[in-house]
Design a protein around this nucleic acid. Structure first.
Lengths: 211, 211
DNA sequence: TAGATTGTTAATCGATTAACAATC
DNA sequence: TAGATTGTTAATCGATTAACAATC
């Protein structure tokens, strides 16, 4: 999986969509597709699809198109799907619980190994097959277990401290649901999920689009 | 609130971030800020901030900068914050429940009025102060109530049908948590929240960034 | 071989950044 | 008034689209 040119963030954000459509096409029994056809389905230009895919090598074949299964598998590898990433969730509130019980993650190879909260009321509770531990156990837990991804579902004012603790404990990626930007050192990846931002963008369009 | 030029999607997606930072600045007791200072905090260039804000009028003052409270209030209006949008949630599973109980929405003027599910086990349950109704009640409910936004928290294969029902019932915006793209007629706004996509982008960066 | 469709270069379009006159 | 900082135009940069030779 050589990545030829520097891949832009715009391309990266389209990859999960390609994966999703290819998976669906594969399940429907098809084996090949052209950039033209895929573009029509996804609402993208054929040209953009070819450019995007070519960032990762010449995966198609002139006169034929793309083999759906092969391309899906290749994009899966690029995205790290199926790599058995160990995940822990910090904060067992509504969002933490929803993430813990979200199906679909497991299929992609993300396995929730632990959930932590400061609330004694929640500690010990079984959520999606995993017991909630007290947050004071976190440091020791991270020493004893290899965890790749930490999910921040704590209040905004606790997010930075929680992120620091995760990074100290060896976590390499942070999936941040707290409505605040967090700072991490070089080499640590962060993805923010600002639920409220998305709702506000919807609200904006509802007010301003229909002109 | 005249919008002068066509505002690009890139600008729109930055607006909630501006709102968030300005709210925080206001709460910390500050009253003015320059594009320079705001840019330093947000990790944007001063130039970009001035360009963004100018899409919505000349809201600053030469030699002074921006009045934090005024600018925050203006962006709030642009985003439709505080407009008392009525919201219903379709699907009372993990995500539906998390959305229903998410605080922070209420402050922005989004009010969850109803939750619907097909599961008899969930019907009647109280979630965040709202009782779960059976999905078969939806059409009648939409006739009798003015609902602005519908939140799709149903399985992917039920999402399009649910969206159609919402649009028929007069809903103007759809906040879609189902991992599938839905089609709606002109004049209806949709925002997708592909949780899995965001996790996969994180996974990509964890694999490919540290080169 | 002929037809189809990619890989890739070139052209266009749009977004970001820089620069500076306007003005508070 | 002098200094600061915006509003806005121009320059740059990057992403998307178009075009077409390569090739299956």
């Amino acid at each position: 999986m050589e990545i030829r040119n520097k891949v832009s963030e715009a391309v990266i954000r389209r990859l999960p969509g390609y994966y999703r459509y290819l998976e669906q096409l594969e399940q429907s029994g098809l084996t090949r597709i052209s950039s033209q056809q895929l573009g029509a389905r996804m609402g993208l230009t054929a040209s953009q699809i070819r450019q995007d895919i070519n960032c990762f090598g010449a995966l198609g074949q002139q006169g034929y198109g793309y083999n759906i299964g092969e391309l899906r598998a290749h994009i899966a590898e690029i995205l790290g799907i199926g790599r058995s990433n160990n995940v822990i969730i910090l904060g067992a509130g509504n969002i933490g619980q929803a993430v813990a019980q979200y199906p679909g993650f497991a299929n992609l190879g993300f396995c929730v190994k632990g959930i932590f909260d400061v609330s004694e009321a929640l500690v010990g509770k079984n959520i999606g097959g995993v017991q909630v531990l007290h947050s004071r156990e976190l440091d020791r837990y991270l020493e004893e277990n290899v965890i790749h991804i930490g999910v921040l579902c704590v209040p905004a004012d606790k997010a930075q401290a929680a992120a620091d603790e995760l990074v100290c404990g060896g976590v390499k990626g942070i999936w941040n649901f707290a409505p605040v930007d967090i700072a991490v050192r070089e080499g640590i990846s962060v993805q923010n999920v600002q639920l409220t931002d998305s709702l506000l963008v919807l609200s904006y369009h509802m007010l301003n689009d229909s002109i």
